[in-house]
Design a protein around this nucleic acid. Structure first.
Lengths: 348, 348
DNA sequence: GCTCCTCCGGCAAGCACTTTCCCGAATCTG
DNA sequence: CAGATTCGGGAAAGTGCTTGCCGGAGGAGC
């Protein structure tokens, strides 16, 4: 009586048998687009599928069709709100296109990035999206580059977020411009001397933001001394420690501390406060990204607002919607948002 | 000369041809565990694979082997740090086991949860992990239950996080106990009258936390009036609005506001501050979760600390590591952490 | 020197689908 | 009413891989 196999899901063949039609017809009734199938048969197939709890084997479909409907996303750290916001955008856009997204988190380790790409390549995803990879130049990580090139040669599309110097299509977050715009606004608000909390030197994002900010201050006649440029991890704790280091160097004249991302700014604020520095009375603070969950810290953080979700969405569009070839570089601009952490300075 | 196909990745067959061996040998050299292959042949195969940039087609492997090495994760909102932290744990544990994880975000909409499970089922993942699903009872969402049951019948393993009333193995976050413990501590700190900002009524997590908290206060002789129980979304804005509503009801005697999660607490604090309420002088605030990125808000938030990453890890272990059947319910306890947002009250 | 194992390539049969091709029947055309 | 077209079901040929089984080569045992 009970003929179903001990394990394993029902197959299309079983559905066909139950419905009393051929495999081909069952396939067409459930997915086949180009050809019509007799409504009566279709109904029978659908009914059979329902009673059997049939679910098409995507892997088998993929091999038969020679292509999947999958997108692979590689991020540095999914628990970091910056990345998870971008991931959210990617997933939304993927959903709309009926794509499944597989995610890998490299834990900010370069070697794992290559390993993940290698592994994902086997999935034959429609696109591989790398966000937050850090290498300063392709040469410094040839393996990853080779892997990606091989993937593209086989017909895949790779999209990078924020790595415009690489030979792949990329969402180009204009860090330099954003930081410069923020600096401009702050200068207008009366700030004259700033310190910068930046990230590891080989991390492009951090470098660009720091440079853009410093350049703008210099252009306006307020160059930033190297003494007030301190390096830390690109994380909350990195900001905390960098702020400590900065204070050790003495921040007497510093009116403003610019951290290259909000998380670091948050860490820096925590340190400063613990050290008895009043914010923003004693020193102003600014960040970059406009992370949602940090929007309620006190004092409200001045920052450069980035459309994180949109970036994720664009990453998919860029890779999949065959725009007339050209657009291989999508620029994204951030807008400065001044909040309480950087009050107007009124000079006598 | 250039014989390679216009598109598509190289296949095992090509590798075999280049290496001058049979398909079977190539397969065994690259993956086949149980049988040895002549070192010379193996070397030839590996070399061929390298020059061709071969990457095994996981979909084909899956259909041939009759099983994938994939885990599916369904969360309510990946950009919410609560979920992304859990996801991080899941991904770490998955990585260690050589599993690929595919993620879906339901955007907190119940219907999408079912749709996602249906879609993921086709992937034949080793396990489907649902976190933050909200239905109060299986009956209220029979479709999802059916889908999951069908998946299990076909040999899959479903794991739920925080849905202990469902007939699946679950990571049981002891919300009630955690909230009660927090309440106990606060009472010890001198708090006598509290208000609760809770989530939608059918959201178990919210309900349990609110109930646990209220019960503890009642037990100690300080029952919480319904008037001070306000409902909002389980989000930052939900907390903001709930706090506004609470204030409208007049919070004169309220010494403490307990929001059922940190994000809501953050929103509530933002509202209160904007309304001129001093924190924590005028009223104390407490949350639940101990979200990492909220650790630097001011005043530092009293909360119940949950090992989010560990929860993700356990979810995978629970599903995949065939523990001697029994352990189908893994309890996770949170620990109360009192910080500046709830200072000691000294009564005359 | 012959038989019996063992070892390890390779053939070929799956795996769960899609899609091409064939073919009979129904419909259309003049 | 004959011939030309659709129309749509089904058989079968893929798709890229794994694996059971066969058989030849080489070594061991008597």
């Amino acid at each position: 009586m009970n003929t179903e196999r001990a394990s394993g899901a029902p197959t299309l063949e079983e559905v066909a048998r139950v419905a009393g039609v051929s495999l081909a017809t069952a396939s067409r009734a459930l997915n086949g687009s180009s050809r019509k199938v007799n409504p009566e048969y279709r109904e029978r197939v659908l009914a059979a599928a329902r009673t059997l709890d049939y679910s098409p084997n995507l892997a088998a479909q993929a091999v038969a069709k020679g292509g999947t409907s999958t997108v692979a996303l590689v991020v540095a750290d999914i628990s970091d709100p910056y990345f998870s916001s971008i991931a959210s955008g990617v997933m939304r856009a993927a959903e709309e296109r009926g794509l499944i997204v597989t995610i890998g988190s490299t834990e900010r380790r370069r070697a794992r990035e290559t390993a993940m790409v290698r592994m994902f390549r086997g999935q034959r995803p429609r696109s591989i999206i790398l966000v937050g990879s850090r290498w300063a130049a392709l040469g410094s990580d040839r393996e990853l580059g080779d892997e990606l090139k091989a993937y593209e040669k086989a017909g895949g599309r790779v999209t990078m977020v924020s790595q415009p110097q690489l030979p792949f299509r990329t969402i180009d977050i204009r860090n330099r411009e954003g930081a410069a715009a923020l600096a401009g606004q702050l200068i207008k608000h009366g700030y004259r001397s700033a310190a910068i909390l930046t990230g590891p030197g080989d991390l492009n994002t951090a470098r660009e933001r720091a440079e853009g900010f410093a350049a703008a201050f210099a252009e306006h006649g307020h160059p930033i001394d190297d003494r007030w440029l301190v390096t830390g991890d690109f994380t909350r704790d990195g900001g905390f420690l960098a702020a400590a280091e900065l204070r050790r160097r003495g921040l007497g004249e510093v009116e403003l501390i610019f951290a290259v991302n909000d998380i670091m700014a948050g860490g820096a604020m925590a340190y400063l406060r613990s050290a008895g520095v009043r914010l923003p009375e004693d020193v102003a603070v600014a960040g970059f990204d406009d992370i949602y969950s940090l929007r309620d810290i006190t004092p409200a953080l001045t920052t450069v607002s980035l459309p994180l979700e949109l970036i994720g969405r664009r990453a998919i569009e860029c890779a999949l919607d065959d725009e007339q070839n050209g657009d291989t570089r999508v620029p994204i601009y951030g807008v400065p948002v001044l909040r309480e952490s950087s009050p107007l300075i009124v000079r006598a």
